[in-house]
Amino acid sequence: MQPTLNPVSTAKETFSSSRSSGDIVFVSRLLRHFWDTKRGEVVVLRSPDQGPRKRLIKRVVALEGDRIYNCRTGKEVEIPRGCCWIEGDNRALSRDSASHYGPVPLGLIEGRVIAIVWPPGRWQMLSAPQRTESSVDSGLGLESELPSTIRALAKPTRSK
């Protein structure tokens, strides 16, 4: 989820066991009972293919009924009923809907990430990037409306 979460750690650190630099986030389990999941929210969900113990943090990119262009496979996908499309902000290194899972059921979502709590210097609320409904429908995906830093990382070139 770089650069939104763990912006300083390099890719190498992310995959090694050093977790000292990890951000601690506040997750609300309650909100999902009262408000529907919206596009752009960062959510915690149970892994679709590695059993219920493994958790993922991803951004919801599209919801049921949307058509989205998968930049990995180059195909347009329609999200089926009760499902959503999740992607990490660091697309090149993320194991997400685009690279592995495809559309995932909304029932896997456990909660919504509200704020970064630790480290104190990065204390902030996580709000969805300003996006319009049409950006998903037009097949442009996320790139047009994300902050420029994320957009730079989201280009499908692989970082070594």
Binding site: P52, P80, R81, G82, C83, P105, L106, G107, L108, I109
Partner: peptide, 19 residues
């Protein structure tokens, strides 16, 4: 939680079409 479900188990799951 503890082990995998087995074939022929009757289970309750969150609906994939409506959470």
């Amino acid at each position: 939680q503890l082990r995998e479900v087995e074939r022929a188990d009757v289970i309750v799951a969150v609906s994939p079409q409506n959470p």
